[in-house]
Design a protein around this nucleic acid. Sequence first.
DNA 1: CGAGATTTGTGCGTATGTATT
DNA 2: AAATACATACGCACAAATCTC
Lengths: 136, 136
Amino acid sequence: MINPRPGGPPVYLQLAEILRTRIVTGKIAAGQALPSERTLQQEHALGRHTVRKAMAVLRAEGLVTFVRGTGMVARERAERQRLVPPAGAAVLTRMPSSEERDEFDLDDGVPVFAVRTPEGSEQVFPGDRWVLIWPG
Amino acid sequence: MINPRPGGPPVYLQLAEILRTRIVTGKIAAGQALPSERTLQQEHALGRHTVRKAMAVLRAEGLVTFVRGTGMVARERAERQRLVPPAGAAVLTRMPSSEERDEFDLDDGVPVFAVRTPEGSEQVFPGDRWVLIWPG
DNA sequence: CGAGATTTGTGCGTATGTATT
DNA sequence: AAATACATACGCACAAATCTC
């Protein structure tokens, strides 16, 4: 139940927590649609901005994707490809630039690996589709 | 100049691009404050909602931090510590959970490394303070 | 120290556009 | 063609944190 008392957590974070719980516990399975904006507004007696802000939180966490005309969908966990970087490489993680989001067709809330070789070149890998493996 | 013609890119993305350019080119140095919401509204004749959406884009990219009562500040790039994961480890990157954001005092738009050892344990490292090094 | 101004945070209302079903 | 659902964009009010005088 959402509690709008002052001093407490913001309403949109309370709603995000409710939805997050449903997703991570599997009550809403991957690929399955979540309640629409309107439904959430009516069920919890909230304004549209508040509902959208809660949804934006989940999107930024990479838990959901939005499909226009369909709604908010719990994100599928893609199979990850294994990558062994070259010897001496340095690996950073960060959010992608807008160009990188376009190039790799990344959802909101998906970071990237940036692999820098000793020679100085940098290659970018979408964080939701790769796992880095250490030798050994 | 911002162009609100229909069919073109959304106004808030145009504004985000303008501010992004100022940051990455160094016109606005790290640690320096950006124009306030009000200033941006007046300069570009936009509603507050639109301005805030542009700012949210930059925040999600990890370019700026917001300080209530102070303003929007270009993020400092922290010195990164070097980490060599154990042999056979698998490394993922993702956005942190709300608990992890609290625990590590992470800004918005900062992903984490998740290092899984062959034994099955997982350890989390803030993505803005660590760089992973491959042996070699 | 306080008072007031500034700035971002939260929450709601409304209208219109666009894509999908 | 129509309904549904999200996207963009204008507006308002008040709260909370910070800064300045």
